[in-house]
Amino acid sequence: MLLIKCPYCQEDRPEIEFSYSGEAHIARPLNPDDLSDEEWAEYLFIRSNRRGLHHERWLHAHGCARFFNALRDTVSDKFELTYKMGEPKAQVKK
């Protein structure tokens, strides 16, 4: 069971308090009607499914109940860092 640092609680907490919420930094378009079918399909369905460092959304469901963003390694499963919603997208170190 992983330990996940909740950026709101500022604590390492057990994984079972959290739930995964898909890839991060995919903002809902402000004016969906302006999008072509292809663009809308891209927003709805296309995800990067990355091997290695991956930007993810997590929810501290049984904790502070906040969604936050994380950079996680999909190979080792481990979290590199977590940060609050609205903060800039974490850069992946080369």
Binding site: C9, R13, I16, E17, H62, G63, C64, A65
Partner: peptide, 8 residues
């Protein structure tokens, strides 16, 4: 003492 949290 004095700490509170929602958990499982």
């Amino acid at each position: 003492v004095g700490k509170c949290t929602r958990t499982i």
